[in-house]
Design a protein around this nucleic acid. Structure first.
Length: 691
DNA sequence: TAGCCTCGAGTTCT
DNA sequence: CTCGAGGCTA
């Protein structure tokens, strides 16, 4: 077969596959593959057609604006066609520079001409809608369809609460507003939750949605307006269609501002950008905030701001020369699940971890993803050999979203954690157990288990615990595997001679560790308590206990009833602490550690109480502060008597926000809380210090 | 007793 | 960051 025949065969296969997926996606709202995969197939076909123009067919998916008209909805012919914007798939800043260069060249601008003014907007992941207002009255809403003809969806779009049925102060004969209907992520989650309950209750014909966009498309095309009313959609305008009897402003920014004044929802995240540099900055700024936005976007859109220049630039085939969509890297990808490993945590918890064929998603290569527990595996019906969808969204940690059912091989293996392990811990061979009503299996080996011992040592040495510098996970692996360290006190028996017997432990790093251990001996009661790793005793509880009892021996001797007197300590935590100190080997470890020279200032009740000016105030930190580290800020607030909490609630008094603050800042604004920057926090601490 | 709030624990990659 | 669960409060 020659190259030409191979290309022809591949192009035909791609067309068939793309048509199938387009039908699933646009008509049935039930895609089988993630968008990124579709895009990849689409681009491959485009590339073949570019290299072999003779293979181009008029019915190729690359030649059409896709969007079939559904039965049951009435077709609407657009007075002004709804065109799509060219997509720049280069996700780097260079994508913005290329667009700027194209525009400048098309306008015949010299290299030293001043930068162009652009309007930069978010590219919402929803569906485009045309709203027709006549004499200020909403008379019709239509989907884009193929760009020439869409579907009449007035009945569902009218249900969008934020959308005005009547424009404020407008009498124009015709004013068509174009924008994107989408669903917020929280609305989407709530909707799917309700759908799941309906399905569980046995409702027929109900289904959950794959993503917010498909949910939005499903709701807009819903024939039953009453049903649509219960499924909250959002809308932001991005432009105009037919206009009769209204003198539109001269710029894109001006048009959107005018629409906003009429009561049409307009995104607050649009901005004027100056030249390629401004576009790049906008792209980066939005990229940093992408995960914390309350809705999905798949990129940003750049438009030449001046409508006169837009007209001068005109169109190239069916796409405007004056606008481009600049995408971000896909947050979802498919990959092969090659196997499932089981990890043992500090508390003995057995966690199944998916071993994935490495895949580039959301900016990094992912090869592991937690599956949490057996319930999760069963719920998602994940099997070894499956092709799975992997996502990095909302946070940094990859997760397996679900299985691509159509690609399951016949020999895909179900995974049962208990059966796979044969009932024994994979590290130490002890029996594994599961408490009544609990989801997690645990290794019963305790500190006999090397995995738990390693984790216990790492926890002990951690920054927030004893803060032993120079002791990382690789070194702990070696120390435990070589049986050099079996218990926590043995750490303090290490010297340069013992360490130099280990691999890659030349004089310098050995000395570092010995120094680190020496330094860690001087600590605080709370740190020591936290370092012991008692179940249910984290950093905060350790501090509460240290403050309440003052001295270790008083804590050791405390009865469960006395422990319950501590704020935030209930029966479960009290029992856990009491049990810990009732075990002779735990008492031995504590005694030996103290014998190694670990010490702290115990509170004998005579010390002067330091002033606590921030007493009773709760702070939440978000983003990165210019000079203080998170820990520094936390320490200083606590030293002044304040509390630092991890999540924003009505009880929060101040949110301290730094660069790239995330969802916590949004939440703070929502609740109308006081937001401080670092300078304001420092000023407050300084005032407090003098008071 | 329900619902809110917080804490603890586990997690990925550079 | 998110989940689950412990503790507190209306």
């Amino acid at each position: 077969m020659n190259r030409q025949t191979i290309a022809a065969a591949r192009a035909a296969a791609l067309r068939a596959e793309l048509q199938h997926h387009a039908h699933r996606y646009y008509v049935l709202d039930a895609p089988e593959i993630p968008d990124a995969d579709y895009d990849r197939l689409f681009q491959e076909l485009q590339a073949i057609e570019a290299a072999h123009p003779e293979l181009l067919t008029p019915d190729s998916p690359t030649q059409r604006v896709i969007g079939a008209v559904l039965d049951g909805l009435v077709p609407v012919r657009h007075q002004v066609p709804m065109l799509s914007v060219h997509t720049e798939t280069d996700t780097t800043p260079a994508g913005a520079e290329k667009f700027d260069a194209r525009v400048r060249k098309a306008l015949g601008l010299a290299d030293d001409a001043p930068p162009l003014v652009y309007h930069a907007e978010l590219k919402f992941d929803g569906l485009a809608i045309n709203l027709r207002y006549e004499h200020g009255e909403l008379v019709q809403a239509a989907t884009r369809g193929d760009g020439e003809t869409g579907e009449d969806v007035t009945h569902t779009v009218r249900m969008i609460a934020t959308l005005p049925k009547r424009l404020r102060g407008v009498t124009a004969a015709v004013l068509e507003v174009r924008g994107e209907v989408f669903m917020r992520r929280d609305d989407f989650e709530a909707l799917n939750e309700r759908q799941r309950k309906l399905i569980e209750a046995g409702a027929r014909g109900e289904k959950t949605f794959v993503n917010p966009r498909n949910a939005a498309a499903g709701v807009v095309r819903q024939l039953d307006a009453a049903k649509a009313a219960k499924r909250p959609l959002s809308f932001f305008a991005y432009g105009l269609g037919e206009v009769l009897g209204w003198a539109a402003p001269a710029t894109q920014g001006g048009v959107l501002a005018a629409l906003g004044k009429m009561g049409v929802p307009v995104s607050p995240d649009s901005a004027v950008a100056l030249g390629a540099e401004g576009l790049v900055r906008y792209h980066e700024r939005i990229a940093a905030r992408r995960d914390s936005l309350p809705f999905d976007i798949d990129g940003v859109v750049y438009k030449v701001d001046d409508l006169g220049l837009q007209a001068a630039l005109g169109f190239k085939s069916r796409e405007p020369r004056w606008a481009v969509a600049h995408k971000y890297p896909a947050q979802e990808q498919t990959t092969l699940l090659q196997g499932i490993d089981v990890q043992v945590g500090r508390t003995g918890k057995l966690t199944p971890v998916a071993k994935l064929a490495p895949v580039f998603v959301g900016g990094t290569t992912v090869s592991n993803a937690t599956l949490h527990n057996q319930d999760e595996i069963d719920r998602k019906d994940v099997r070894i050999g499956d092709t799975v969808v992997v996502r990095r969204a909302g946070d940094v940690i990859p997760e397996v979203v679900g299985v691509v059912a159509a690609r399951r091989p016949a020999d895909a293996q179900r995974f049962d954690l208990y059966a796979r392990l044969g009932g024994h811990c994979p590290v130490c061979g002890s029996a594994i157990t599961r408490e009544e009503g609990e989801v997690d299996w645990r290794c019963s080996g305790g500190l006999f288990c090397a995995a738990q011992r390693k984790q216990a040592i790492l926890h002990f040495a951690g920054r927030r615990a004893m803060d032993v510098e120079g002791l990382g996970d690789k070194l702990v692996d070696q120390l435990v595997d070589a049986a050099v360290v079996r218990t926590l006190p043995e750490l303090y028996g290490l010297d340069v001679a013992k360490l130099s017997a280990l691999d890659r432990m030349a004089g310098k790093s050995a000395q570092n560790l010995v120094d680190g251990l020496a330094k860690s001996r001087q600590t605080t009661f709370a740190r020591f308590l936290y370092a012991l790793g008692i179940r249910h005793v984290g950093e905060t509880t350790a501090k509460d206990l240290a403050r309440h009892f003052g001295q270790l021996d008083r804590l050791i001797d405390a009865s469960e009833a006395q422990l319950l007197e501590v704020a935030d300590v209930g029966p479960i935590v009290a029992q856990s602490i009491h049990t810990f100190f009732a075990q002779p080997h735990n008492l031995d470890i504590v005694r030996e550690l103290r014998a190694c020279g670990i010490e702290w200032k115990e509170d004998d009740g005579t010390a002067d109480p330091t002033p606590k000016p921030l007493l009773g105030l709760t702070f939440v930190l978000t983003g990165s502060l210019p000079t203080l580290s998170r820990d520094d800020a936390k320490d200083r607030i606590e030293a002044a008597g304040g509390k630092v909490s991890g999540s924003v609630s009505k009880k929060t008094h101040f949110v301290v926000a730094g660069a790239e603050a995330g969802s916590k800042l949004d939440k703070a604004r929502e609740l109308g809380l006081a937001v401080l920057d670092e300078a304001a926090l420092l000023a407050m601490l300084a005032r407090a210090g003098r008071a």
